[in-house]
């Protein structure tokens, strides 16, 4: 068994395979790690989109047709949910990793988080303007 041999009689408890289901926080952590796969997928998807646009009208239309297929819609909805999770979790962790000081005083975490959302909103607005105009 997992018990040590020899004089050491102390008992080593094995980590169960499903340890990450034992606590909500562990589960959220594993989902956050998993979200990276979906980020990679959406980056790839974006590149495919740009390529289709570059290849002209027909390729672009094909891309749109594919995008409307049920399985791709499902995949992208799931991917989007994971992206939201990714964004929220990482934004809220940033103040722990980054200490910002203004005039000797530590900027409170909530301000750093708010700053990130403001930056995200600004970039989103810019991209929307770029695409729509």
């Amino acid at each position: 068994m997992s018990r040590a041999t020899g004089d050491d009689l102390s008992y080593r408890r094995p980590v169960p395979l499903w340890w990450w289901l034992h606590k909500r926080t562990y589960f959220v952590f594993v989902m956050r790690e998993l979200s990276s796969i979906f980020i990679a997928w959406l980056v790839l998807y974006l590149l495919l989109f740009v390529r289709a646009v570059g290849r002209g009208e027909a390729a672009y239309q094909d891309f749109l047709d594919d995008a409307a297929s049920p399985w791709l819609v499902t995949l992208n909805v799931i991917a989007f949910a994971f992206i939201v999770l990714h964004t929220i979790t990482w934004f809220s962790l940033t103040p722990q990793a980054m200490v910002v000081r203004v005039r000797g005083h530590r900027v409170p975490g909530i301000a750093i988080i708010a700053g990130q959302y403001a930056a995200l909103a600004a970039v989103t607005a810019f991209v929307a303007w770029l695409v729509l105009s």
């Binding site: 606590k23 926080t25 562990y26 952590f29 790690e33 962790l93 722990q96």
Partner: peptide
Amino acid sequence: TFVGECTRVCPKHVD
């Protein structure tokens, strides 16, 4: 891997 549980359980708010 930044699970963050250590900070949550720390009784002395060490983070």
